[in-house]
Amino acid sequence: MADYQNLIPDIQNGILTLTINRPDKLNALNAATINEIKTAIEDAYDDKDIKGIIITGAGEKAFVAGADIKEIASLNAAYGRKFAEQGQEAFFSIENCAKPVIAAVNGFALGGGCELAMACHLRVATENAKFGQPEVNLGVIPGYGGTQRLTQLVGKGKALELMMTGDMISAQEAHKLGLVNHVVSDQNELVNKCHEILGKIISKAPLAVGMVINCVNAVFDPEEKGYQTEANSFSNCCKSEDFKEGTSAFLEKRKPEFKGA
């Protein structure tokens, strides 16, 4: 695995945990950190030892408190587009990963941090977590996909309210809105819950799990025909060894042993 300056990777029981390690900056995302996240995720695509991924932040104060304001302050119109597109590309690598990715949100998930969490397939938060897209306070808007993913997750009206006011919401409200899947009491429970969910997912057929992710993403891709994507994926599953194993195990009343093929 590559050497990182702002990211701590750790693999246990097939689960890769990526900890964003800039606690003195509340784990704010600068360009180098975003590139490291993209590299780590893409390296995990073909690593057979990695079955699932957790992304979290160092310390208890913040998952990611936002983008690095010093970098944003120096932007002009020309580089602004490139800045946004680079972040979007990195977060697409998370969203399109065929292996399940969970954001373990401890503390603030604001701006780019909220966008990072939303790019993950699932979100688990501690009770003290706070979510928000406060970019209007800086005279800009979310640029890493936040306008799109927040709307997908909570609906147009609430997304507009949150992005136009810049308000923060609690983990409990985020859960009610569907932004967060689970809320837990503290950081120990956060880790345990993420491992519990991933343990359940990675016990299933890997090809099928990856195709579920692809089909759900197709719902929001204007270039995809979601029902056709589903039918094609279902057909591909029927050709797999995992399909043969899963159906055989069911009929033989035993636990399946999936190989991801």
Rank of each mutant, 00 (worst) to 15 (best):
I72S: 01
G111R: 03
A62P: 08
P134N: 07
G59I: 12
E85C: 01
G139N: 08
A119W: 02
A125I: 02
F108G: 02
C120H: 05
Q133T: 02
A67M: 07
Y144D: 12
E89M: 07
E95R: 15
T151C: 12
A78G: 04
P100V: 04
A67P: 00
G59T: 13
V136D: 04
V124I: 15
R149I: 09
G66Y: 02
P134H: 10
E71Y: 03
E89N: 13
V154R: 02
M118I: 04
L138G: 12
I94P: 08
T151V: 02
D68H: 08
N137Q: 11
G66H: 04
Y144F: 15
I102Y: 14
V124F: 06
T56D: 00
K156Q: 15
K82M: 12
A125L: 05
V105W: 06
G107C: 10
L75Q: 14
Y144K: 02
P100K: 08
G155I: 04
F92H: 13
E60C: 00
G57H: 03
N128L: 09
E89F: 03
G111Y: 01
L153G: 00
T151P: 00
E71C: 06
G132Q: 01
A98H: 12
V140R: 05
P134Q: 05
V64E: 00
K130M: 14
P134A: 08
P100F: 09
T56P: 00
G157L: 09
H121V: 06
G145P: 06
A104F: 12
F108I: 00
F92Y: 14
I69H: 01
L75M: 14
K130S: 08
G107S: 07
A58R: 02
N128F: 08
K61V: 05
Y144H: 11
G157M: 04
H121L: 09
M118R: 05
A73V: 10
Q86L: 11
C120I: 03
G87F: 09
V124C: 07
A84P: 00
G143C: 11
D68Y: 11
P142Y: 13
I69E: 07
G107N: 11
A84N: 14
A103Q: 07
C114N: 15
F83K: 06
G157C: 00
A78T: 14
P142Q: 11
V64L: 02
K82C: 01
N76S: 12
Q148L: 10
Q86D: 15
M118A: 11
T151S: 12
K130R: 13
F91K: 05
N96Y: 12
S93P: 03
E115M: 09
Q88I: 14
E89V: 04
N96A: 10
A62Q: 05
A98G: 03
D68K: 10
G139V: 09
A90H: 01
A73S: 15
A77N: 11
A103T: 05
R81L: 13
C97E: 03
L160S: 13
G59D: 12
A125Q: 02
Q86C: 01
M118D: 08
L110H: 07
